[in-house]
Simulated scan of single mutants.
Amino acid sequence: MRAVDKFDARRDQLAESALKTLGELGYARTTLREIANNSPFSHGVVHYYFQDKLELVIHSVRYYKARCVTRYDAVIADATTADGLVDAFADKLAETIRDEAPMHRLWYDLRTQSMFEEQLRDAVTTIDKTLEAMIWQVVTRYAGLAGRPAALAPPVAYGMLDGLFQQALLEHVGGHAEALPTLVDQVHAVMPLMLQR
């Protein structure tokens, strides 16, 4: 393995460790020392690979979201009917909240924090655009299967689904048992609104 590849691989390992701590404590309450204490890496190693917490956080979230945007590829590829696509998509949204709520909490924490911390803004905006494109792939596949063109622009479709997702996450984190079934129902109700009549 080349030195550059080893360096990048170690940064990704540190990102995995950092994500666990960040997901539990949130951006503001997490320090590099806290990340090091909750990982197999020393504080010095963390500092060697990242200048500061902000650089590590940005790398970690980009690393995580790069995996997230591919999670719906199979949903899109395997769908043979519009209804089947909505079923699989809604179930996948609920599954990701159930299985990865801390990571999603971190994402919304950072997105809010980027309104105050300019250094986060570019990374958050880039990731947000990637998520918008991912949602748009689902919407356009749904439109194709339904035989009707999309009625909304990509940012509007993303805003609608992201809003439902964030509400469901908040309810789920608050211990509401109906949060995820409600999300599934809401996705089923909203998706047809995205198509022209």
Rank of each mutant, 00 (worst) to 15 (best):
S42F: 02
L106N: 09
V86R: 04
K92P: 02
E55I: 01
L54F: 01
R105M: 07
L54G: 02
D52L: 03
L106T: 13
N38M: 05
L106R: 10
D52A: 03
D52E: 05
V45N: 01
D99R: 15
I97R: 01
T96S: 13
H47T: 11
I58C: 02
S42K: 01
T96R: 13
D91C: 06
V61N: 07
A101C: 07
K53G: 04
T96F: 07
P102F: 04
Y49G: 07
H43S: 07
A79W: 03
V69G: 11
A66E: 12
Y64H: 15
T81M: 12
Y72K: 03
C68L: 12
P102N: 07
W107V: 02
D99N: 15
V46C: 02
F89P: 00
Q51S: 14
A77I: 14
S39I: 08
H104T: 10
T80S: 13
A101E: 11
E95C: 11
I97S: 01
A94N: 02
A82R: 06
D87A: 15
Y49R: 04
T81E: 11
A88H: 02
D52H: 03
I58V: 13
W107E: 03
T70K: 14
D91F: 04
A66Y: 06
Y49S: 05
T96D: 14
R98S: 13
I76P: 02
L106Q: 10
A66H: 10
V46K: 00
K92V: 09
F89T: 03
A74N: 06
A88P: 01
H59A: 12
H43D: 05
V46P: 00
P102D: 06
D78E: 15
A101M: 07
A88D: 11
D99L: 15
L56D: 06
R105V: 12
C68E: 14
V75P: 05
D73H: 08
V69C: 11
A74L: 10
Y49V: 08
A82C: 10
R105W: 00
D83I: 10
D78I: 12
N38Y: 03
F41A: 08
D52W: 02
Y63E: 01
E95Y: 14
R67D: 12
V86C: 09
D83Q: 15
D87S: 15
C68V: 13
I97L: 11
Y72A: 06
D91M: 09
